[in-house]
Design a binder for these strands. Structure first.
Length: 224
DNA sequence: GCGACAG
DNA sequence: ATCTTGTCGC
């Protein structure tokens, strides 16, 4: 029942409304995860029939060595169009397929996109968390909702992402002098803990190693 | 009404 | 997301 994929926008909105109450925004989640997985999707050129080729990748990293210990991929196609706010319905079906073939359960899942920093507080990371039951967090390259101010320039500094008076996430500086990433809770973890893990996973580049490796892998799969 | 809008 | 090499700057 919960694993239904919508055919239209109205149905997608109803599914988000039904699943949103299932999100655990308290956590606290894994304090010292042994493994963290990155999830990403790549798209090919639209086909004549209107569908789009999709490749999903999951890369599990050892948090100490930051080296991959397991990977999983899946290929498929989407007919659901890209709509800000309904992003998950375009990506998750293929992601779920990839996760089913992953014979390793990571302590945390990091998604490319938002969690609670979403107009209806149910971004991609929340959706994936509810469907899998695993702790998840969103790491986005751009803010979707919310604003921040007074963010310091040094690595490790952060500012709350506010939507009105509500804290929906954090702008986190992973590299000094470089645009921050936007972290938000997905499921079964708290914001501070998620942010701490994201920073630790991004010792050298703006994006955490999890998403960098997942990004590289899904693009590679899309070709081969 | 107009523009903005995760990937 | 994707189309895409070299290049300007610290």
């Amino acid at each position: 029942m919960p694993h239904a994929w919508p055919d239209d926008e109205a149905e997608a909105l109803r599914i988000q409304d039904a699943l949103r109450p299932l999100v655990d925004t308290v956590g606290p989640g894994p304090r010292a995860p042994r493994t963290v997985a990155g999830v990403d999707v790549a798209y090919g050129a639209d086909r004549p029939d209107g569908s789009t080729p999709v490749a999903a990748a999951v890369v599990v990293l050892d948090t100490v060595t930051l080296r991959p210990v397991a990977t999983a991929t899946a290929v498929g196609s989407t007919t659901f169009p890209y709509r800000p706010g309904l992003f998950a319905f375009r990506e998750l079906p293929t992601v779920i397929t990839a996760l089913r073939s992953l014979h390793h359960t990571p302590d945390l899942l990091l998604c490319d996109g938002q969690g609670l920093a979403h107009p209806r507080r149910f971004g991609l990371a929340c959706h994936l968390g509810v469907l899998t039951g695993l702790p998840t967090a969103g790491v986005a390259k751009n803010a979707f909702v919310g604003t921040f101010s007074g963010l310091g320039t040094e690595r490790g500094e952060w500012a709350p992402l506010l939507d009105g008076t509500e804290v929906v996430g954090r702008a986190l500086r992973t590299r000094s002098g470089v645009k921050p990433v936007f972290v938000s809770v997905g499921h079964a973890i708290d914001l501070a803990t998620a942010s701490r893990h994201v920073l630790a996973l991004a010792p050298g580049y703006r994006l955490p190693e999890t998403t960098r490796l997942a990004d590289r892998l899904c693009r590679q799969v899309l070709r081969g």
